[in-house]
Structures are given as structure tokens and as C-alpha cells.
Design a protein around this nucleic acid. Structure first.
Lengths: 206, 206
DNA sequence: TCGTAGCTTTACCAATTGGTCAAAAAGCGA
DNA sequence: TCGCTTTTTGACCAATTGGTAAAGCTACGA
């Protein structure tokens, strides 16, 4: 029995674990951590509650697993922003990738939002170790672009906040947007944000 | 016993009801409706649980009362936007008022956010009857300003979404911002948003 | 000062919660 | 097919939940 061998998971394990995580994503993103119940998750997954606890040690482990997986997905669009590419194209492409995520992964966006809203009790370490260095790095890249005259001057950190808030808003506040928006909001959002950030970032040759 | 007389509330009633609502704002904004418990609210208010239920019929009534009161406060900055004022000043002032609310009333902002995030189950009627007409009205005003050449052209509805998301972000995602922001974020936000919306809305005389 | 309306508390529900356990069932390699 | 591991289940538990009932306390006008 070599101690480090984690024993590859069976097909059943793979299937049920992802069944559970998918159900948990539904429930946690809709009710927050405290508002979610194992019974809801079990029913949504089509499994019995004790069976859920056969695959995960407890409610918290499910939540933490979900958040850890999400962190990667969430940072990916920012990682892809290339310091050597064309500044305006890179930033606009980043905005579009973030907007795509709001459209394609609204549950994940809400899970993230509700966690931060509640003070990020289970995610502060992740934010410190994963997000913070990446954020500082990319802000420096943007600062460099601005100093090179490729983009209009603006505080890079607040620029990032603006990108995040405007794009994620379409997932997180969907209920409100559905009420106020006439036609398909997402198509309009695409054009709107493209215009917004182009006007904001186009350098003025005085 | 004249039936329509609601009998003015005593001083004790006034004090305890507002004590409860303030405590409930803490708890609901931090955990959402399902995640909040009457015991938490009772402890935060410094009253016993049965005493809480003497003033409110139940958990839901507390929540609904809170949301109803909030709706007024929340719409007020938009109501104040004057169709007869200077367009650019009016819009920039609106942005600053919204940002002030994020700084001064972060709990209220989060209560609103968490309610919308979870599908606005207890607020859809309010949004329909209170927010929607006001929103349509103000969008028409902005549209008029743009057609008069006072502001650069952009979809007024998405402009409103952008104002809401960028300003409320500083209250709702405070936990994240604290990690990523060096100095006081609010002062930076003020300047950033002023620049942002000025660049976005300044008409280009081609 | 006393009575009564308004306020508060103690004791208590029934339902739901996260979680346990042992036994049953289902897979599955030989 | 056998025998063993993995998976699933039903019964159960202590703690917490929203809420109730009734008794006790307090303020305050007559």
C-alpha cells in the first residue's frame, strides 16, 4: 500500500461528484451558503442525502470545492490578456470574454457574487494568493500601455473594477434587467460596452 | 372604536421597531433571506425572539418591510435627476449621488443586491410598479438630451445599467476591493467615475 | 393609588437542519 | 459463479429553526 497513491476515481465517482457539484452550484448560487440545504442539493442531484455525504465530507467541503474550481475559470479571461498584444484590442477582447462568461456561466457569476457580498468568508485566501498577484501584474501592464501612449490615462485598478462590475452586472442582476430591458439585453450590452471602453481608453492626440 | 383609526404608535414601538429593522438589515444583508435567523436578529437588536414577533408577524414581514422602505431611498437619487437641468451636470451628479449611497449605505446596497441576485422573489412587484415607470421616464429624458446634441449618443438603458453597476460595485464587492486596493478606494472611485462618464458622454463635435 | 393596556419573558412546540451508522445492494475482477 | 469492494439506503440523532401560549411585568392616565 504505497502511501501517496490517491487511487484514481471510478466512473461512478466521476459522474456522481460532478452531478453533486452541478446541483450544488444551482442551490448555492440561488440561496447563498447558509440558505442552501443538503436536502435541496440532494434532490437537485437526484441522490439521497447520505449518498451526497458519501462523496463529500460535508456541506462546507462541497462549497469550498465549488469555489476552488470556480476561481480558475474566473481568472482565465484575465490571464489570457497578453502584454505583448495590441493594448486596445487586448482590453476590448478581455471585456468581451468577461461578458461572454456572464452570458454562458451566470450561475458561476452569482456564486462568486454572493460569496463576495457576504464578505468572502471562504474565499479570502484564494483572493489573496490567486487574484491579488495576477491583478497587480495586469494593472502594471495596463499602466505601461498608458505610459506608452497606447491608451488614455486612467487608474488601472478602477478600470478593472469597472470592467468587472459592468460585465458581471448582466448575470448578477439579470432579474432586474429582464424587467427593464425590452429586447435581448446581451446583444445591446456587447455594443454598449465596446463603445464605452473605446471612448474611455482611446488616447486623445491633443 | 372608529374602524379606520390605526392608533399612533407609542414611543416604545417606534424605538423597538427601528431597533429590529436595523438589526435585520445587518443580518439579511450579510446572509440573505434564507440564511438569516430570527435568533440572530433578536440578538443583534438586543431583544428576545418572542418580543421580535410581538412587533412583526414573522420573519417575512420584517424582510418585506425592510425592502419597501429601501425602495424609496434607492430610487431617490434618480428621482432628483432634473430634466430641465444641464444634461452633463445632472448625469454626473446622479453618478456621485449613487456613489455616495454606496459609501454611506453599504448594508442597504447589499440587501438590494442579494435580493436581486436571488431572483428578487419578494421585490418583483416593487420593481414593476415603482422602478420600471421611473426608469422608462428617465431613459426618455436622457434620450432627449442626446437627440438635442447635449450628450454623446449611447443606449440610455445600458447607460443606466453602467451607472448602477459601477457605483454599487464599491459597496457590494467591498471585500474584494479591500484586498486589491491600496489606499482609500472611495476617493479614487469618485475621480475615476467622473472621468469615465465625462469621456463617455461628452459629445464629439466632428 | 390603582387598574388596565401595552410590553416582555419563560417555557414550549413541530418541522427542518447537517450529519451518522449499519445493513443492504450493486459492481466487478477472477 | 464467487467473493470482495464500492455504492446506496433507511432509520435515526442532536441542534437549530420559525413560531406560539400564557403568565408576568411596566408605564401611565384617572
Amino acid at each position: 500500500m504505497p502511501d501517496g497513491a490517491p487511487k484514481k476515481p471510478s466512473r461512478i465517482q466521476m459522474r456522481n461528484r460532478s452531478l453533486i457539484l452541478d446541483a450544488a452550484l444551482d442551490v448555492f448560487s440561488a440561496h447563498g451558503y447558509r440558505g442552501a440545504t443538503l436536502d435541496q442539493i440532494a434532490e437537485a442531484a437526484g441522490l439521497s442525502k447520505p449518498n451526497i455525504l458519501y462523496y463529500f465530507a460535508g456541506k462546507e467541503e462541497i462549497h469550498v470545492t465549488l469555489l476552488s474550481q470556480l476561481m480558475e475559470t474566473w481568472l482565465d479571461p484575465l490571464v489570457e490578456m497578453d502584454a505583448d498584444g495590441d493594448p486596445m484590442s487586448e482590453l476590448l477582447a478581455y471585456v468581451q470574454r468577461k461578458l461572454d462568461m456572464s452570458r454562458d456561466l451566470p450561475r458561476e457569476s452569482r456564486l462568486f457574487a454572493v460569496e463576495i457580498l457576504q464578505g468572502a468568508p471562504r474565499m479570502l485566501p484564494h483572493l489573496q494568493t490567486d487574484l491579488k498577484p495576477l491583478f497587480d501584474d495586469k494593472c502594471a501592464v495596463i499602466q505601461g500601455w498608458m505610459e506608452a501612449g497606447k491608451l488614455a490615462q486612467i487608474d488601472p485598478r478602477h478600470l478593472m473594477f469597472t470592467i468587472w462590475s459592468t460585465t458581471q452586472h448582466y448575470a448578477d442582476f439579470d432579474a432586474q434587467i429582464q424587467i427593464l430591458s425590452g429586447d435581448d439585453p446581451m446583444q445591446g450590452a456587447r455594443l454598449h460596452l465596446e463603445t464605452l471602453f473605446r471612448r474611455l481608453l482611446t488616447p486623445q492626440t491633443s
